[in-house]
C-alpha cells in the first residue's frame, strides 16, 4: 500500500507545471524516504531531478518500494482538476496498474477521485558525480525568469559569466545583443531579494534559452533559485519546494564547435 497526502494540492500543481514542458513520461520512485523522479528530456540535453521527502507529507505510507511510470500530460490534467486549497492524496496498491488521486475540499463537502493508468517504463538512472562548483549563485527566482525571458528575444542562447563582481547574462542575435549584470547585494534586508555569489573561480558558459525558459516554470515554487556552475559541466538550477524537498534541473552547456 502506498498513500501520500498533502494538505494543499498547490505544491503538487506547481511541481507538475514545473516539469510538464520537459517531460512526457517519468517514473515516480516511492520508498520509505519519499518520492523521487529522475528523468531526461527526449533530446538528452536536460535532466529533471525531483525529491519529495516523506516527512514533508501530512501523511505518508509506503509498505514496499514502488516504481510508477506516469504520463506527465495526464497527471497535469488531473492536478488541474484540484483547487489549490484541496487536500490531495495519492494512493496505490503494492503492484499497481493504476494510481488514484483524491481531492478533498477544505470543508470536506466535495470529494473527487481520479484514477490514472500507469505505464511500463524502462528505468534509466544517471549517475551524477559529486561536483564542487566554481560558482554558486543564489538570486531571486523571478529575476532569473525575467532575464531568461528578456534575453530570449535576442538569441537562442544565453551566456552566463560569473565573477567576483557579479553575474552577467548575455545574448546575441541577428537583431542585436543584450546583457544584464547583477551585482552581489551588499546588505539585503530581505533574504528573498538577495543576490549571493560564492565563487572559487570565474566561469563562462552558454546555455540554450529554450531549456532555461522551461526551468523557470518552477518560479512559483520558491522565491530564490540556486545556480551552480563549473567550466564545461552541466548547469544545476535548483528550487527548494517548501519544507518538503527540491527540484533540480541539469542542463548540458553549448560548446564551441
Amino acid at each position: 500500500m502506498f498513500e501520500a497526502r498533502l494538505a494543499q494540492s498547490a505544491i503538487l500543481k506547481k511541481v507538475l507545471e514545473a516539469v510538464k514542458d520537459l517531460l512526457t513520461e517519468a517514473t515516480f520512485e516511492c520508498s520509505d524516504s519519499g518520492i523521487q523522479v529522475q528523468a531526461m528530456d527526449n533530446a538528452h540535453v536536460s535532466l529533471v531531478s525531483l525529491n519529495l521527502r516523506s516527512d514533508g507529507f501530512d501523511k505518508y505510507r509506503c509498505d514496499r518500494n514502488l516504481s510508477m511510470g506516469m504520463n506527465i500530460g495526464t497527471m497535469t490534467k488531473i492536478l488541474r482538476c484540484a483547487s489549490s486549497e484541496d487536500t490531495v492524496t495519492l494512493r496505490a496498491v503494492d503492484s499497481p496498474d493504476n494510481i488514484i488521486f483524491i481531492f478533498e475540499s477544505q470543508n470536506k463537502e466535495k470529494l473527487a477521485e481520479y484514477e490514472m493508468k500507469l505505464i511500463n517504463m524502462d528505468l534509466e538512472h544517471l549517475g551524477i558525480p559529486e561536483t564542487m562548483y566554481s560558482c554558486v549563485v543564489k538570486m531571486p527566482s523571478q529575476e532569473f525568469a525575467r532575464i531568461c525571458r528578456d534575453l530570449s528575444q535576442f538569441g537562442e542562447a544565453i551566456t552566463i559569466a560569473c565573477s567576483k563582481e557579479g553575474i552577467k547574462f548575455s545574448a546575441a542575435g541577428d537583431y542585436g545583443n543584450a546583457n544584464v549584470k547583477l551585482a552581489q547585494t551588499a546588505d539585503s534586508d530581505k533574504e528573498e531579494e538577495a543576490v549571493l555569489i560564492d565563487m572559487q573561480e570565474p566561469v563562462k558558459l552558454t546555455f540554450a534559452c529554450r531549456y532555461l525558459n522551461s526551468f523557470v516554470k518552477a518560479t512559483p515554487l520558491c522565491a530564490q533559485v540556486k545556480l551552480s556552475m563549473s567550466s564545461d559541466v552541466p548547469l544545476v538550477c535548483e528550487y527548494q519546494i517548501g519544507e518538503i524537498g527540491h527540484i533540480r534541473y541539469y542542463l548540458a552547456p553549448k560548446i564551441d564547435d
Partner: peptide, 14 residues
C-alpha cells in the same frame, strides 16, 4: 555558433 552538447557526455547511465 556553439553546438548543444548531450547530457550523456557528462553523466553515465547506471
Amino acid at each position: 555558433t556553439p553546438i548543444q552538447n548531450d547530457l550523456l557526455e557528462y553523466f553515465s547511465l547506471i
